[in-house]
């Protein structure tokens, strides 16, 4: 798992970045979503993965039994997912408004129209 995930995250980063640089706005949304996913997974992975055990303290114990998964990266990840969701939904609405205003989904058209005005 720990050897496979870095390659997957790297691919996600690359694909996300490629889509963000695309001139088609729908692909920009896809890029933002993939890039967000990649950062979240990166955060998850870099915090260290422990399988099969959570940091729940058993009854009549003071501390959780080793080895347990560090809950902090998971908490960070959860917050980051929510924030990313908010920003992505804003971006989707924004791009829809852009499409309504310019009648185009292509960044080149938008630029041309703003330059000529």
């Amino acid at each position: 798992m720990e050897t496979l995930l870095p390659f997957m995250i790297g691919t996600l980063f690359a694909v996300g970045l490629y889509f963000i640089l695309h001139r088609h706005l729908f692909k920009v949304i896809l890029g933002l979503i993939l890039f967000g996913l990649a950062t979240n997974l990166f955060l998850f992975l870099v915090g260290g993965i422990t399988r099969g055990s959570s940091a729940i303290i058993r009854q009549h114990h003071e501390v959780a039994a080793e080895p347990f998964a560090d809950p902090v990266p998971q908490a960070l990840l959860l917050t980051a997912v929510v924030i990313g969701f908010g920003i992505q939904s804003f971006a989707i609405v924004l791009i829809r408004r852009v499409y309504q205003a310019f009648k185009s989904n292509n960044l080149d058209d938008i630029r041309k129209e703003n330059d000529t005005r």
Partner: peptide
Amino acid sequence: KSQLEGTLKYVTINFLASGLLLSGIG
């Protein structure tokens, strides 16, 4: 129209920056 175009750039570039910050925090 010009506001929408400006915001589009701002949102995209700041999303990228936030992603980098988050990775750095990790």
